[in-house]
């Protein structure tokens, strides 16, 4: 039982990071009308930035700002490319997927060449928090706790923004009906650029939480995270933000419990086999596609 509770907590913290990633991906899909395959690569580059910043300074706030800045910058840099692609005649959303795949390839290769000679990096204990809080038999690392709290806060803030502010209403309006949004006078291009900005922040945040939770980064992490993010978004239903919330948390929990009871890398397969089965049985997702 203790193992179960400990794994549940770590699952929730992992899950909330997945939620951030899936939400960012869905936001791009709904507002900017692109499939941002390179998003997890941006997150990993942002993790590398944090690792690099840790060498220079130990001021945690500065490190967090550095991570988020890089993520936002990369996200905004990709915007002109996608806007250009979307403006080409007779081009559908698949083209943005193909282009973002190219961008992901470039980012991955740059990481495996340029950062730490392509070796995985480990975050020093001073970043993760090192020491462990224990309640009886249950032990939770500080990093886990931070990731859980940070993840929950970030997700709540984002959903508040989406449902209670004007900008969030713009996002949902564009997602739902582009023409009507235009007629109401919503500045489409500006809002779309703003969505890249928000997604950049979400990406930077998940990078920081990731680094606290798993404590390492490698050039291949992006590919792995991309796969999970995309699979969750399909299982939940493309563009379905609520579904993404539920399925992201669920994946985190399933994975953590699988790690607790099954050895090694087989535990990763379990989650993927489950998701593959769900997609094959219900290709339109558990909660319905919203695009």
């Amino acid at each position: 039982m203790e193992i179960f509770i400990a794994q549940l907590i770590s699952g929730l913290s992992l899950g909330s990071i997945y939620v951030l990633l899936v939400t960012g991906f869905n936001l791009m899909l709904l507002v900017a009308k692109i499939i941002q395959f390179a998003y997890p690569q941006i997150v990993v580059i942002s993790m590398y930035t944090c690792w690099w910043a840790l060498k220079i300074t130990s001021n945690k706030l500065l490190i967090i700002i550095a991570g988020i800045t890089v993520s936002v910058a990369l996200s905004l840099l990709s915007e002109p490319i996608f806007r250009k692609i979307s403006s080409i005649k007779d081009v559908d959303i698949n083209a943005t997927f193909i282009a973002s795949m190219g961008i992901a390839m470039i980012m991955m290769d740059v990481m495996s060449h340029s950062f730490n000679y392509g070796f995985p990096v480990a975050f020093p204990p001073k970043w993760i928090g090192g020491n462990i809080l224990s309640f009886g038999l249950i032990t939770i690392s500080k990093g886990q706790l931070f990731a859980l709290v940070g993840g929950v806060i970030a997700v709540s803030v984002f959903f508040y923004l989406l449902y209670r502010t004007n900008q969030g209403r713009f996002f949902r309006a564009i997602a739902e009906n582009r023409l009507a949004a235009e007629l109401v006078g919503i500045p489409i291009t500006k809002t779309s650029i703003f969505s890249y900005f928000i997604v950049g922040i979400l990406g930077g945040f998940s990078a920081i939480l990731f680094s606290m939770l798993i404590g390492s980064a490698s050039p291949w992490l992006g590919e792995f995270v991309a796969l999970k993010m995309l699979a969750v978004s399909i299982v939940a239903g493309l563009g379905n933000l609520h579904g993404g919330l539920v399925c992201g948390l669920l994946l985190g929990i399933i994975e953590a419990i699988a790690v607790g009871y099954i050895s090694g890398s087989w535990s990763n397969v379990i989650a993927f086999v489950i998701m593959l089965a769900v997609i094959l049985i219900k290709p339109e997702g558990l909660f319905g596609t919203k695009i």
Binding site: N166, R169, R172, A173, E176, L179, A181, L183, G185
Partner: peptide
């Protein structure tokens, strides 16, 4: 302002939110 043909509205949002979206120019 254009009231488009075929009542184009934001159908997954509430009535109030639809009106709020229309009003954002003059909050």
């Amino acid at each position: 302002s254009l009231i488009p043909e075929g009542h184009i509205i934001f159908s997954s949002m509430s009535v109030l939110e639809n009106l709020q979206l229309g009003a954002y120019q003059s909050l």
